[in-house]
């Protein structure tokens, strides 16, 4: 493929090398608009976001702002973000993997698969605010499930009052339920290709060697799928760690990192150092880089079996 680009040039210009090089530079210019756009709206904002945490109000470089990470509220925010991401990623990954297992052997273009795929993409990407509404209508104070529980006599359920802090849905632990609603579909979307990579010949080989379905899954299926599974799990973790809209629509105070950034951007609350939003952004990016590095490593291992 790479060799074909050059033979094209002689067809363009029969008149000489000077014209060729000029044409070449004109072609380079074709990349300029997109490059300019990416620099202006991706590179600059990203650098500004991360770097702003490293400057004080006067504009001088400082590491003093990093002291914000010692603030108990911010530490609590990172801790909450990490445990809620880990919990929903793990549960979501397990349920999603079971759904993928159930879809094994169905026709990829069949009605069932296209419906599950589309529903998964809607729920995985379109979540946000509307996800919050769905759960207000389900397990909010006036929600369908809450009302049903009350009608059968369970008036004192968690959906009405959890931990003496009001309805479960409006507290950080309550976010687990709506979050699972987009973690499971995301797992289905990302893990299905790996599941489909299982070759039927492996199952046959297992059978001819006297293996059972159980040995097939414990000795062949799971070890092969493990890197892909953990890769998807990391993706789920990262997805939740960076999600904002659902939490913003449900939880009015802070509690997780994105909400803390919002508080810092809208009203500088007292932490004692400048540009806390930037410091928090830096912290999030560090976590994301660690996650993505692990993801890339697992992905390399997983792709070995997906040909």
């Amino acid at each position: 493929m790479t060799t074909v680009a050059t033979p094209l040039a002689p067809a363009d210009t029969t008149s000489g090398a000077g014209v060729t090089s000029r044409r070449r530079s004109v072609v380079w210019l074709g990349l300029a608009p997109f490059a300019a756009y990416v620099v202006l709206f991706l590179a600059i904002p990203a650098v500004l976001a991360v770097a702003s945490g490293l400057f004080d109000n006067a504009g001088a470089f400082t590491l003093a702002n990093l002291a914000a990470f010692a603030d108990p509220n911010i530490l609590k925010g990172f801790f909450a973000s990490i445990w809620i991401s880990a919990l929903t990623a793990t549960i979501g990954a397990v349920i999603g993997a079971v759904v993928c297992f159930a879809l094994l052997g169905t026709k990829p273009n069949g009605f069932l698969r296209t419906t599950v795929d589309s529903a998964s993409s809607v729920l995985a990407q379109f979540g946000g605010v509307m996800l919050a509404f769905a759960f207000i209508a389900t397990i909010g104070q006036q929600g369908l499930l809450t009302k049903w529980l009350i009608s059968i006599g369970v008036t004192d359920n968690v959906f009405v009052n959890f931990n003496n802090g009001g309805p479960l849905l409006y507290q950080i632990p309550g976010l687990v339920i709506p979050y699972l609603y987009f973690q499971v579909p995301l797992m289905v979307l990302t893990f299905m290709p790996a599941m489909e990579g299982l070759k039927s010949t492996w199952a046959e080989a297992n059978a001819t060697l006297g293996g059972t379905r159980f040995t097939y899954w414990t000795r062949i299926g799971m070890p092969i799928l493990a890197p892909a599974f953990f890769g998807s799990l990391i993706l789920l973790f990262a997805n939740l760690f960076s999600s904002y809209a659902t939490a913003a629509a449900l939880v009015s105070q802070g509690g997780i990192v994105p909400l803390a950034i919002k508080q810092q951007l809208t009203s500088e609350t007292v932490v004692g150092v400048a540009n806390v939003a930037g410091v928090l952004a830096l912290g999030m990016v560090v976590v994301m880089i660690v996650l993505m590095t692990a993801y890339a490593a697992l992905q390399r291992r997983a792709s070995r079996w997906q040909r």
């Binding site: 990416v38 709206f41 702003s52 960076s242 904002y244 999030m284 994301m288």
Partner: peptide, 27 residues
């Protein structure tokens, strides 16, 4: 340049939008 372009286009997945927002505000 295909790999470079792919890398550039995938970056926004790894930077949470809330982080980008911190940079978008001054821009």
């Amino acid at each position: 340049l295909r790999r470079v372009l792919e890398f550039v286009c995938i970056i926004p997945v790894t930077i949470p939008s809330i982080v980008l927002v911190v940079g978008f505000v001054p821009v």
